[in-house]
Nucleic acid binder design. Structure first.
Lengths: 335, 335
DNA sequence: TAGCATTGCATAAACGATTAATTTACTATT
DNA sequence: AATAGTAAATTAATCGTTTATGCAATGCTA
């Protein structure tokens, strides 16, 4: 590996101190009072020698790295993948790099990733927290590390967060099914104490109660780790009742995908036999027999807002916890 | 931001030099000859003080960071997203971190990302190169930076690469369509000089020639940047001929998705009106009216092999360029 | 022409780790 | 008792930056 060009190399070539070179290359020649001609010579030399600053050395010295740590639960999930992509894209345009880590919905791994990213001197975190990751997040917030929670949050932790209004969104998704003529509507949702899931659940319940259609047994809670079996069982349950459901709301992207696969396997026709609506966009929703209606979260905007929030914290220090709740559209609705 | 605990802090607390602390925490107490009791005290203290080494300082001093730079063209594409996920997962199990960057199929951005990752002292690169990124890759290889090309490669650059046998795979995908009874088979493929695309094209042609069915006009080349319009035009062309095609091979994941959406819009029924086969898995393939046959690349294995290759280079230096070509299965075939 | 400000640059410490070289204090050997 | 050997630690240099401080030389003022 060819040895890299350092400040010192430029300094030696020109015959000045590396302090001078550093000042010039950081545009501080005014304050540093370096003569125009010398500054110009240094800049030329830097380009000629193909100099690039060592980000590690700089981060070490400065105590900051112009880097944002992003922790998602599963970067291979299309929703999070797009979110990560947008975040990287926008942060890049503002001169920040992003390091993405996966928690796999595992609290311990999230904690480990936080530590790893801290070791890498990231200036702040955008995090999609895991179910019981409250402690880890709390530690971050208490130690004044810039944090933005994304897509999910904790009631007890008063920090910045960006997400959609899950209650309203879920309610209107449910209302959509009602308007489609469904009489018995089921919900497949993660068993989770996280408020964003609770709100999806509550929004669902609210819509049904308003219409006198609320049946607790139609709500099926499943585990992330055993999603496939749980979904099959849930659907079997919902279908083999005396009063089988005629509509289902899927409370997440993965739930929707797995459910649709199983419904297909069971030869249930959508929407003639069963009407459904899912969360978060997926190519599959557009390509199924009939387009599958879904809740489209404003991914680019969520990404942009969380980057803005994290950078504000990084650069200004003081900022009152901002809670952003965006509206989500329903897509692929039948006309 | 609470100030982090450093080696020096531990050293001061215990009243020894930081050299001693460093030796102990790196398990070099034997060579450094530190007494058992002191070593134990140091270790205890480190845990008690919640010490975590500063990765930047270490990287700066050591000249390496235990980090792999991964450059993909689009991390929001399901194929690359899963690849990245597997790579991160496996590298993590070996004690390496991965930093993922996007090139957006843009040569200049790839070059910029290479530079950024270099600045971050990554120890090696796994890269899915862009169309004209040959120069950038060549520079890396020439300066002895560990590199593994993934999914694509360049004829002229003799470096490590991991990909599938695109010729054979494409040929058998085409043969599948032939066996399904297709008489006029089209191909939608990126206009690209990259050998992996050429091979997909050649494999396609080979299968047709063998069966006396080769018609150059059935091959439609499209641009990545204007994929949507190009695909629509390509499909329109293929369908409005005097001899319209009755089967299409899609040479990439995104091509397949866009094409399927358009075919659906045009009300072409698959597989009754038209038989197709795509590349790379996608949830959408399983959920469409009829499951869409596709070439399933061995993603986990590709990821694992490229990580192994890059780490071997990082740790051993000398290693003859290894060219790995894996076999890919056809999935979702009708029985 | 002494005094003072300004210009133009160099010096050196610091960030947090690693490690070769050195020092110190014993113990063992002859 | 002198010497050598070893165990246990310290010292100090180093990685590549940034930046506060120092120090000449020059210009300006009175």
């Amino acid at each position: 590996m060819m040895t890299r060009v350092s400040l010192k190399d430029i300094a030696q070539e020109i015959g000045v101190s590396n302090a001078t070179v550093s000042l010039v290359l950081n545009g501080k020649e005014k304050e540093g009072r370096v003569s125009k001609e010398l500054a110009e010579r240094i800049r030329k030399k830097a380009v000629a020698m193909n100099y690039h600053p060592n980000a590690m050395a700089r981060a070490l010295r400065m105590g900051s790295s112009n880097t944002i740590g992003l922790i998602v639960t599963d970067s291979s999930n299309q929703f999070f993948a797009k979110l990560a992509f947008r975040i990287e894209e926008y942060a890049d345009s503002l001169g920040y790099s992003v390091i993405v880590a996966n928690s796999n919905e595992n609290d311990a791994k999230m904690e480990r990733m936080i530590q790893e990213l801290k070791n890498r001197q990231v200036d702040g975190f955008i995090i999609i927290p895991t179910e019981n990751g409250q402690g880890s997040i709390n530690n971050l917030v208490n130690s004044k590390v810039p944090v933005v929670l994304l897509d999910r949050y904790f009631e007890e932790i008063n920090t910045h967060h960006v997400l959609i209004d899950n209650f309203k969104t879920s309610r209107s998704a449910t209302e959509f099914l009602i308007n489609q003529g469904c009489k018995r509507i089921g919900l497949i949702i993660y068993k989770s104490e996280l408020p964003h899931m609770q709100e999806r659940r509550n929004g669902f319940a609210e819509a049904l109660k308003r219409n006198g259609m609320y049946v607790p047994a139609f709500i099926k809670e499943i585990n992330y780790q055993t999603i496939e079996e749980n979904i099959q069982k849930a659907i079997d349950d919902l279908l083999t009742r005396i009063d089988p459901v005629d509509g289902i709301l899927f409370a997440s992207n993965s739930i929707a995908i797995h459910s649709l696969k199983y419904l297909m396997k069971r030869n249930i026709n959508i929407p003639s036999d069963m009407k459904v609506i899912g969360f978060d966009e997926n190519d599959a929703f557009d390509l199924s027999r009939e387009p599958i209606p879904f809740v489209q979260q404003p991914i680019a905007e969520m990404g942009k807002l969380s980057v803005d929030l994290i950078i504000k914290q990084i650069e200004k220090e003081a900022l009152n916890p901002t809670h952003i709740e965006l509206l989500a559209d329903l897509q692929n609705l039948p006309n």
